[in-house]
């Protein structure tokens, strides 16, 4: 009678939902670092980034549409002047929030403020067990600040800290030690997955991309660590690379939207298509356009081309308005 059916993949089949289940929102593009593997090419601000009123208007629409879960990223989201307003509003409406940060702006006061928001999680990028590997990838980065941020959050009650590790030829050999380090910092989870050939990572692909043998060793270490930390810390490897995910999404779009710092909505990370603009369209209009766009012949044709020639993902940030 009331059987609970399980959807196999989170956000499976956008077409069945009245509104998105998940929003990935890049609040800003400004960043204090210049990471070689940044998939957003973050650095300086967009000239037309959303102002506070526009952001809060979008938040109100998220609440009215009963969006359950929003991830706030950037750039570095803690550099966004409206970050706390957005976070506070979303949490006041019961929306779960994850923050994706490089961790370097988290000082004692910020850690307390984040803890008070009772976030779903604070996700921190840690690309090495050693300062050398982390900072080789993260230009202007400071590994010690990241470790300190994790310690500050650990000292707060109820903060789920998640570590994100992106494997590259610079750091892939350190994955086991990085997982051990995350566990020693009481991280709630350790998340990784194959390097995405988007943004600055695409430009630096030849020097960043691990070899097949390195990936093989990487996955073996992950399997061992998953067992080692079972029940204590989640060790998760995203199972699809960017092309595998795109191939799947061409037939099964996820129930999620990717909102850019200027309010434009991108269909999915690896494709250049823009399907709406939250400055001039309502969330409901964007959601309908999003679903229609996945059936647009231009999207299907380009998507299939990318699957056949993965190097085309490098064009993902050359936006095309639908």
């Amino acid at each position: 009678m009331s059987e609970l059916q399980t959807a196999t993949v989170p956000g499976d089949s956008a077409y069945q939902y009245a509104s998105p289940l998940f929003i990935a929102w890049q609040l800003n593009s400004e960043c204090n670092l210049n990471c070689l593997h940044c998939c957003e090419e973050a650095g300086t601000s967009f000239p037309d980034q959303l102002n506070k009123d526009q952001m809060l208007n979008i938040c109100r629409q998220f609440a009215e549409a009963e969006i359950p879960y929003v991830a706030l990223s950037g750039g570095e989201p803690l550099l966004c002047p409206h970050f706390w307003d957005v976070c506070g509003f979303l949490r006041s409406r019961g929306i779960d929030v994850k923050i994706e940060t490089n961790g370097e702006m988290i000082d004692p006061a910020t850690a307390v403020r984040l803890a008070r928001l009772k976030l779903r999680s604070v996700q921190i990028s840690l690309d090495g067990a050693s300062q050398k590997a982390h900072e080789a990838l993260r230009e202007r980065g400071d590994w010690r600040k990241v470790i300190n941020a994790c310690k500050l959050l650990r000292a707060q009650e109820g903060v789920n800290t998640e570590i994100v590790f992106v494997p590259t030829s610079f750091n892939i050999h350190e994955v086991g030690a990085a997982i051990d380090l995350a566990a020693s910092l009481n991280a709630h989870g350790f998340y990784t997955g194959k390097l995405m050939r988007i943004g600055r990572a695409a430009r630096n692909w030849e020097k960043l991309c691990p070899t097949d043998k390195q990936y093989q060793d990487f996955f073996e270490v992950l399997d061992k660590k998953k067992e080692q930390y079972k029940g204590r810390m989640k060790v998760y490897c995203y199972p699809y690379d960017v092309i595998e995910e795109l191939r799947y999404r061409l037939t099964t779009p996820s129930a999620s939207l990717l909102v850019l710092p200027n309010g434009k909505v991108k269909l999915i990370g690896p494709l250049p298509f823009i399907c709406g603009d939250l400055r001039v369209m309502s969330l409901a209009e964007v959601w309908e356009k999003y679903k229609q766009s996945w059936r647009d012949p231009r999207v299907l044709e380009f998507g299939r081309s990318v699957v056949a020639q993965p190097a085309l993902v490098a064009k993902a940030n050359d936006w095309i308005e639908l």
């Binding site: 009331s2 059987e3 609970l4 059916q5 399980t6 959807a7 993949v9 989170p10 956000g11 499976d12 069945q16 939902y17 009245a18 289940l21 009963e66 359950p68 879960y69 019961g94 779960d96 994850k98 779903r120 999680s121 789920n160 129930a255």
Partner: peptide, 24 residues
């Protein structure tokens, strides 16, 4: 864990584990 009504019934989202369940 969040839930909301949908035309087909309801969707339940365990955001911490990023798992979605649907029901009639």
């Amino acid at each position: 864990v969040k839930w909301r009504s949908e035309k087909f019934g309801a969707v339940v989202f365990d955001t911490l584990n990023e798992k979605v369940f649907v029901t009639n």
